[in-house]
Simulated assay, not measured.
Amino acid sequence: MTVTTRQGMSDAAVIEQSWQEPGVFAALYERHAPHISRYVARRLGDDLADDVTAETFYRAFEKRRHYDLDRPDARPWLYGIAANVMAQHHRKETRMLRAFARSGADPVAQTYGGQLEGADDRVTATGMHQSLAAALAGLSRAHREVLLLIAWADLSYEETARALDTSVGTVRSRLHRARKKIRAALGDANPMFVTGNGGGTDRERP
């Protein structure tokens, strides 16, 4: 089967075919790795992005026979695996956020420059304020995970629930608490815009 044909296949179809032809899984990597890598870099910095992305797809490849083929879009599954890999670096992420809150120097933005334009369009126009970094650093891992999967990975509530293997109700509850804490830290300002590009009905508008 040609690469062009695979590009027209759903993620689920690619994964299913990779059961018999492992090399086909590369199409899933080519399709989603750049987005996963940018998301990881935004959270952990450029130095860990490649390693975390590689580990994410290695685990995905190893688990591919357990994938639910009724789900044509593998993004929630992949982001869920990435979240588990990033959990090992939770303390580093918190240290990065606190360092940015103190200094105002965002190491990720300095590394990527204009490449991050559009990736963070759910944060205020002036970028990730120091006060927002401090607020994010103060969130629990569970609350931060939900908030950023929706705000930066552009997942819906349902997709976030699938990524984290939890219920939509739990996602809504965690998101509400995360927003409440951030608003309190920012003096009731709401810097997080969680409407998706597609305007999903289950996303709240600011």
Score class of each variant (00 low, 15 high):
41 A>V: 12
31 R>I: 00
81 I>F: 06
190 N>G: 03
190 N>S: 13
160 T>S: 12
89 H>G: 06
132 L>F: 12
179 R>Y: 07
99 A>K: 02
83 A>G: 06
196 G>F: 01
26 A>G: 07
114 G>M: 04
105 A>L: 05
123 V>C: 06
23 G>V: 05
128 M>Y: 06
96 M>Y: 10
22 P>S: 09
6 R>A: 08
43 R>S: 13
152 W>Y: 06
29 Y>R: 15
195 T>A: 12
86 M>R: 11
189 A>P: 00
160 T>Q: 02
174 R>H: 07
120 D>W: 09
59 R>N: 05
200 G>S: 10
35 H>L: 08
56 T>S: 07
127 G>R: 06
164 L>G: 09
71 R>D: 08
76 P>F: 00
58 Y>D: 15
170 T>L: 10
192 M>C: 04
95 R>G: 04
166 T>W: 03
42 R>K: 06
120 D>S: 11
166 T>Y: 00
184 A>W: 03
66 H>D: 11
64 R>L: 05
151 A>P: 00
117 E>M: 11
169 G>D: 15
44 L>Y: 08
43 R>F: 06
25 F>C: 02
205 R>P: 10
46 D>N: 13
10 S>K: 02
19 W>K: 03
177 R>N: 11
109 A>T: 10
181 K>V: 04
175 L>T: 08
145 E>N: 10
162 R>F: 10
55 E>L: 14
76 P>W: 01
74 A>L: 05
205 R>W: 03
20 Q>C: 04
104 G>W: 01
181 K>Q: 14
179 R>H: 11
181 K>H: 12
41 A>W: 03
67 Y>R: 09
119 A>Y: 07
41 A>E: 00
92 K>W: 13
114 G>P: 02
69 L>Q: 05
167 S>K: 08
90 H>W: 09
205 R>C: 11
65 R>N: 01
116 L>V: 11
148 L>M: 14
175 L>D: 14
100 F>C: 08
53 T>R: 05
85 V>Q: 12
12 A>Q: 03
154 D>C: 05
154 D>F: 00
